[in-house]
C-alpha cells in the first residue's frame, strides 16, 4: 500500500514536470524546449501503446515502429494530397484535419496489428520477437522503395495539419494538444489495467495454461491487447509526423522499435508512467549528450545497463519500490 501511494505521488510529479518545464520555457521564451517536451509527450504516447502489449501482456514486440510509421505515413500522405489537391485513391481526397488523420492512422495501424498479431501470437519468446521485427522490416523496406511518397528521402508536411480551436503552428498549443492526448492515453491504460480485461491479460502473462483453465482465451485477449497497443502507437506516429513536419522510412526502422522498448525498460515495465519518464530520459540524453558527442547512445546504454542490472523495476521501481502492479 505504501508503495502504491508512493508510485501515485511519483506519477503525479512526472506528469506535472512534463507540463511545468515547457510552461517555464514559454515564459522564458525558449520554443525549442517546448518542442522537446512535445517530442517527449508523443514518444511517451507511443510507448504507452507498447506498454499495453509489453508491460501488461508480456508480449515483447520488437516491431512497434511499424505502427508508428503507419501513423506517420497516414499523416504525411493525407496532408500531401490535401496540399496538392489530388485524390489519395478511389477518388478520396486528402485532409489536413488532425482528427480525421488520427482516426485513419488508428484504424489502419489497428488493422495491421490485427494481421501481424494473428500470425505472430501463435509463437512466443524469441520467435515472437523475430516475427514482429520481420513485419516491421517489411514495412521499412516497402516505404523505402515507394517513390510516390518520397522513397528514402521521406515526405515533408509543408503546413502542419489543423485541429479545431488550436493553432498548431504555435509550439505551446501543439504541446498542449500532445499532452492532452497523452493524458487520455494514460487514463485509458490505467482503466484497462484495472479492468477484468487487464487482469486477464496479466494473468495470461504469468501463466497462460492456468488462465485458460479459468475460461480466459489467451489468444483472443492477447490479440485484442496487441491491436489496442498498435492503435495507440499509430496515433503517436501521426502526431510525431506533424511535430517534425516530416515522414520518412526511419520511423519504421528497427532502431525505433528498440527505442520504444528502451523507454519502457528505463521507466519500469508495466508501470503507468514509465513511458513518460523513459521518454524524458531518452530525449534528455539525446539533447544533452547529443550536442556534445554523436555517441550519446553510449551513455544511454550505460544507464540502461545499470537499470537492467540493479533496478529491474526501472527508475520508477527504484523510487517507488518493486511491489505494485504486475
Amino acid at each position: 500500500m505504501v508503495e502504491a501511494r508512493r508510485e501515485f505521488i511519483l506519477n503525479a510529479v512526472i506528469v506535472l514536470a512534463l507540463f511545468a518545464v515547457p510552461l517555464w520555457a514559454l515564459m522564458a521564451g525558449e520554443p525549442f524546449i517546448i518542442s522537446l517536451a512535445t517530442r517527449v509527450a508523443i514518444l511517451a504516447l507511443a510507448a504507452v501503446g507498447l506498454n499495453i502489449a509489453l508491460g501488461l501482456g508480456g508480449m515483447v514486440s520488437f516491431g512497434h515502429a511499424l505502427y508508428f510509421g503507419i501513423g506517420g505515413y497516414c499523416a504525411g500522405i493525407l496532408a500531401h494530397h490535401a496540399f496538392s489537391g489530388t485524390p489519395v485513391a478511389f477518388g478520396l481526397s486528402g485532409t489536413n484535419q488532425m482528427l480525421v488523420i488520427w482516426a485513419v492512422a488508428m484504424a489502419l495501424s489497428g488493422l495491421v496489428a490485427a494481421v501481424v498479431g494473428a500470425l505472430s501470437l501463435r509463437t512466443s519468446g524469441i520467435f515472437f520477437i523475430m516475427i514482429t521485427l520481420a513485419f516491421a522490416q517489411m514495412g521499412f523496406f516497402f516505404t523505402l522503395s515507394w517513390p510516390a511518397y518520397g522513397g528514402e528521402d521521406g515526405l515533408p508536411i509543408f503546413v502542419r495539419n489543423q485541429f479545431p480551436g488550436v493553432n498548431t503552428m504555435r509550439p505551446w498549443e501543439l504541446f498542449l494538444l500532445a499532452f492532452g492526448v497523452l493524458l487520455v492515453a494514460l487514463v485509458v491504460f490505467a482503466m484497462l489495467r484495472a479492468s477484468r480485461f487487464g487482469a486477464a491479460l496479466m494473468a495470461i502473462r504469468q501463466n497462460p495454461d492456468r488462465a485458460a483453465a479459468v475460461g480466459i482465451s489467451p489468444f483472443g485477449v492477447k490479440l485484442t491487447a496487441f491491436v489496442i497497443s498498435g492503435m495507440l502507437t499509430g496515433l503517436a506516429g501521426a502526431m510525431m509526423a506533424d511535430l517534425s513536419r516530416f515522414t520518412s522510412p526511419a520511423m519504421m526502422a528497427w532502431t525505433m522499435s528498440g527505442e520504444l522498448i528502451v523507454i519502457i525498460i528505463l521507466g519500469g515495465v508495466g508501470r503507468l508512467c514509465a513511458p513518460v519518464l523513459g521518454a524524458a530520459i531518452l530525449v534528455g540524453f539525446e539533447t544533452l549528450f547529443g550536442g556534445w558527442t554523436e555517441h550519446w547512445q553510449l551513455w544511454l546504454g550505460l544507464v540502461l545497463l545499470g537499470v537492467v542490472l540493479f533496478a529491474r523495476g526501472g527508475v520508477i521501481g527504484l523510487i517507488a519500490g518493486r511491489e505494485g502492479h504486475g
Partner: peptide, 25 residues
C-alpha cells in the same frame, strides 16, 4: 467446468482482487 487446481496455483503477482476479476463471468 471450474477447476481449483492442485497446489492452488493462483497468479502470484496479481492482487487478490485481480486474481478474482480476471476469471469473472
Amino acid at each position: 467446468i471450474g477447476l481449483v487446481p492442485e497446489g492452488r496455483r493462483c497468479f502470484p503477482n496479481l492482487s487478490v482482487t485481480e486474481n478474482l476479476i480476471a476469471a469473472a463471468r
